[in-house]
Design a protein around this nucleic acid. Structure first.
Lengths: 267, 267
DNA sequence: GTTTTTTGTGATTAATCGGGTGACAATACT
DNA sequence: AGTATTGTCACCCGATTAATCACAAAAAAC
């Protein structure tokens, strides 16, 4: 049962990694068979026999399958560790090449109207986490971070938080006392608190079941707020920059009204 | 000029990483523009303006682009570091999911005829390097390795070689004295030599311009030989296992005849 | 040695996907 | 008001991919 859904999962992920359906099926089939011929593979994976050969050739070229050139040919998947290592290597290479290529692409200096009212949206947990870390690393005075879901407290984030300069005030809030304790333990240098932001949950729209993800305010000049749809695990963020940015101003007003436990020196 | 080929390279790599052509073009376009509208992007990238929106939405969902929901909408690429970090994260997650899914897929125990004459082929530099390291790590007595091209002496390989047990004899050959010196410096525990295998170059087939890549013999029971097409950088390997394997026997005979500078205890 | 099955290649069809274009209403600019 | 811009849809077409068939070479069975 479960092994069957895992099989499907593996096929799906392999396709996300760039393989075609037949190729993915063949590879998963071969990981279950120590060694197999086109016929056996075809029966097991329900890939038309005559197309097994094409699929295997592609897999072989990618370094995921070995071929024994006998008659009939025998196919064999490389070990799981070898396969994942090879895939990892491939993607590392590609990302590196991308990085190299783009660093040397000249940017077009454009009529750069950095409107002070910019509010940008950003999607995806990975991207938002990277942006969060980027902002934290750029802080010079104060970091206020509220974490709404324990799944967001990743090792990377903890590492980034512990790596900030001593003279930067780090204030981290959580929605629950247990999460607060966890944060305090992981980041001793931080001041932690339990946030009074529960009201952000089911707000006015009752049908919209999004819960708060993170809230980050850096140097009172940049803010990032994210929400999570619990079902799809999809995280979406809004992000504003600049001391005069309306969005940022609202966040400061919130703080001034004591919804976040920080004194605003301006009041 | 050069920045143009880099642009092309970036677009190509992004497609290898799973983006569609329009998406790749848009992302590269946005990295050159601090911020852009659909129209400007369309002019710069030659993507039809009406299709910019689709492409951007996909990019936004992947966390590579930010959107400012004004009118007209403004688009902005996340910083290069954020982009590569996000891509890396995504692929790590996928490879991990693949690993998890496949470890729990039950293998079908099959009439396992481990013929002693098996000779398998394997392609791709990454895959062959992984297999090389795998074999080295599994060695119990002796490792004989001949490296035919300095590009194959990667940091990973050096690490693997230095990590073997002390009681394993490590013999590494190179095709040139300079490469030998490099190896000896990187792996002090190894016995190095200059190989007498140059004859393997243009062998009988004169039209076939493949040069030797690596030759690995582990415990005199497993052998891997690879060749490289200098043009395409494509590495191909043959691999045999088992003391009685005909391929392995040939390799031992070669050694016995002094082509490799190791005494065969059987003679 | 002949028949029968298996094996590998190639060509062919059908469906899907991605690149490319135009119509059109809503919105912003003059 | 009028003009240009912007965003959404619907559509077309070429390329890719899933799926099937025809067939010759090779094994296997008899």
């Amino acid at each position: 049962m479960d092994t069957d859904t895992n099989k499907e999962e593996a096929i799906e992920v392999l396709q996300q990694l760039g393989l075609k359906e037949y190729e993915a099926r063949c590879f998963v089939g071969l990981t279950r068979l120590n060694t197999g011929t086109a016929k056996k593979l075809s029966e097991l994976t329900e890939v038309p026999r005559t197309r097994i050969y094409d699929a295997i050739r592609v897999l072989e070229a990618q370094g995921l399958v070995e071929i024994q050139h006998s008659s009939p040919q025998q196919f064999r998947a490389v070990s799981l560790d070898e396969a994942t290592a090879t895939l990892r290597d491939q993607y590392e290479e590609r990302v590196d090449r991308l990085h190299d290529a783009l660093t040397t692409v000249e940017t077009i200096d454009d009529d750069d109207e950095s409107s002070i009212q910019e509010v940008w949206t950003l999607s995806g947990q990975d991207a938002i986490e990277n942006r969060t870390e980027q902002l934290i690393e750029a802080a010079s005075d104060e970091i206020v971070l509220v974490i709404g879901d324990e799944s967001l407290l990743t090792a990377d984030l903890v590492e980034t938080l512990t790596g900030v300069d001593d003279d930067i005030e780090v204030i981290v809030g959580a929605l629950t006392p247990s999460l607060q304790a966890e944060i305090q333990a992981a980041v001793p240098a931080a001041t932690t608190f339990v946030s009074g932001l529960e009201w952000l949950h089911g707000e006015t729209d009752t049908e919209d079941d999004t819960s708060i993800g993170r809230l980050l305010l850096v140097d009172r000049a940049s803010i990032l707020v994210s929400s999570i749809r619990p079902e799809s695990k999809d995280e979406q963020a809004v992000f504003g920059e600049g001391f005069g940015n309306g969005f940022v101003v609202i966040a400061r007003r919130l703080m001034a009204q004591g919804l976040l436990p920080i004194r605003d020196p301006n009041t």
